[in-house]
Design a protein around this nucleic acid. Structure first.
Lengths: 212, 212
DNA sequence: ACCTGAACACCGTTCAAGT
DNA sequence: ACCTGAACACCGTTCAAGT
């Protein structure tokens, strides 16, 4: 009797997340997933209609694990900062799923919880519904963009010299000279991909909210 | 003699863009691309190493067409606003490529030109290299995030009632009540996906830059 | 009810060959 | 130099069947 614990959505998504962590989204294959689960490819279709439903499920699992609303800071600014920081951390830890954020995702339970809690905190702080919606939109846009930029540019920005090398490679020998402003700014670009810099950005948005 | 004008990177990318515009990134297939070009699949490999190189090329073509640096506003704030607005418009017009922004993209010529020009304008306005880099990072993050959110939520946000319906569908009959803050904010969320709202966001970032 | 096996209509890509 | 044709090792998904 081979140990064949029953399949479930949860178990499938966890296995999928592991595969994606190793080889990225394009490494995720129904057949490979089934093998990892010790099961036939078709067993997976008992729990998901198709592959797209699985990849969307990944986002939900990641947000759920991040628990961006599950904490208790008294100060509402601190609460918001913590909430978006958790979102940021979760996405940075699973860079492979970032492209999914640009997809026509429908809101899942966990994403909605985060949204509802954050809006509730903002409105509790005295913002009206419109300003709360606006603030949330600014911060979630910034979070997603920061994480996308970080993932897109990670290798280049880690080391300013690599960026210059890349310019030369892309543009020919005098790339560094032709793009003089980029060259001048390059030494400073790495730090903006950091977590602390992200948190500063959220703080800045909070500081410039319309007075409650 | 069938009209077989010679293949080129440019011609291949244009055809790929058309396919992606119709059926999205997953509709893009070397075989389909070749058929559209009246050519055998293998002919494409004379110009691109593999499919990934083609999809990355799409971003470059789109940014190139948007020409985000090709304008002459005297006021530097107006110049920056126009530049990021063009970026925004281009991405909104080609939502299918937005997921690529979260990919480990290397900088192409056109993306670098945009970056160099914007940094040059910011530094010309009196910002030092560090503050210019910071400002650019904020604005490009916001642009990408805004566009991703817009693309992810488009259908839901267009119509507040649809969002409530969706809540009910996702969460059971009393979804709208359980997520009361989302329900309260829903009527205001649609407008934040608009171009004007995006431009307001850029203006707000510009207004809060460290004084030059 | 849950899983399997075989099959279908596709993929990206390699290789040897044509002109 | 540039393109073709056939083949390889895969895909996601359907269908009919097993237990």
């Amino acid at each position: 009797m081979p140990p064949r614990p029953k399949l479930s959505r949860e178990k499938i998504l966890r296995a999928a997340l592991a595969i994606v962590g190793e080889d990225g989204l394009e490494g995720l294959t129904i057949r490979r997933l089934a093998t990892a689960l010790g099961v036939t490819p078709m067993a997976v279709y008992r729990h998901f209609e198709n592959k797209a439903e699985i990849t969307l499920g990944l986002l939900e699992v990641i947000i759920g694990d991040a628990a961006p609303s599950d904490h208790q800071e008294q100060d509402w600014r601190a609460w918001i900062l913590e909430s978006f920081s958790r979102m940021y951390d979760a996405l940075v830890e699973h860079p492979a799923v970032i492209p999914l954020l640009g997809t026509s995702v429908s809101f899942g339970r966990h994403a909605l919880e985060q949204m509802d809690s954050a809006l509730g905190v903002l409105m509790g702080a005295g913002l009206d519904a419109e300003n709360a919606a606006h603030a949330f939109h600014s911060m979630i846009s910034y979070t997603i963009g920061a994480v996308a930029i970080r993932s897109a540019a990670q290798r280049q920005l880690e080391d300013p010299e690599r960026l210059i090398e890349l310019l030369d490679a892309t543009l020919g020998e005098d790339g560094g000279r032709a793009f003089s402003s980029v060259a001048a700014a390059a030494p400073h670009m790495g730090s903006f991909a950091s977590r602390e810099s992200f948190r500063d950005g959220i703080r800045r948005i909070l500081d410039h909210l319309p007075a409650p």
